[in-house]
Amino acid sequence: MSAPTADDTTEHVFYAERPEWADVVPVVQYENIQPLAPIFYSPEYKDATDYFRGVVKIGEKSLRVLQLTETIIRLNPAHYSAWQYRYETLIAISAPLQPELVLSNTLTKASPKTYQVWHHRRLLLTALGDPAPELAFNEEVLKADAKNYHTWSHRQWLLAHFDQENLWADELPFIDGLLEDDVRNNSAWHHRFFVSFERGSNDDKDEAEAIVKRELAFAKEKIALAPNNSSAWNYLRGILDHSRVPYSTQAIFARQYIVDTVEPRGNDILDLENPPPSEGAELPCAAAIEFMADVHEASGNEGISEAVELWRSLADTHDTIRKRYWEYRIRNAVATTGKA
């Protein structure tokens, strides 16, 4: 059994003119009123949705309903009721779901920014129970838009829901590749955090420590490459907060980024734990100043005045748009030490 598809290459025939639909009474959208703020629909869309309302009214779930809902979804992929009714119909008539997934590939690639296309896939994958080919498809969609929110949250759902070792296995190399393409892609950074720290089933303490070490090194290496990259700094902070490691452990690293110019490299052996800024770095780096201010603030009384000085430099020179915030940090820190 296969569902007839709404083939968009042949000439469109209105549902009102199809004899096989003659038994369904179309339902117009608004009866007896002139709606405020109406939308001007194309005749094809109006015709199909009139029949859809007719079908919903009588509760018919049949093969031809799949054709009708496909017509609507192709014209308006955000029509969630058509998607929902389609899914219920697929289940009700026990339609094979694999061909539906294939159709969904096309529709997803055509409208990757629509909630419904992704949710439909989720329902299908859950019912089919086979996540293996989905990562490759997802990657293909990310190639066209590496920051698509839906694509990413779908990928993360897939990993968390099925939680299979073979699914997680290649995620880090995959992220490495994306960050090599664009080290400022925050979606890839978030995914890295998800993969490294949010996998529910990891209880091994030694392994957890090794991951923290690995990720700190990774973040610092990427900061060195392009220091004014908020994504990498947020990631560095995220690791430290998550693992409750004090920021001060990274002070030697961060200090290199708050100077005015890149210091010429001597012949000394490179400190691999604390990679210095690249030659092209534009210093001082506001994110590093903020980081160092946090280090000083956490060290208590004596540190506060150094922190205040750094916040002042952000407020007055290096990050003036956030002047109010930096002044708020100063007020708070001073008030806290005053009380202590």
Binding site: A146, D181, D182, V183, R184, N185, L225, A226, P227, N228, N229, P277, S278, E279, G280, A281, E282, C285
Partner: peptide, 10 residues
């Protein structure tokens, strides 16, 4: 916005 002589798509 400083790009650190390291342009990317972003």
């Amino acid at each position: 916005t400083p790009i650190d002589a390291y342009p990317t798509k972003t």
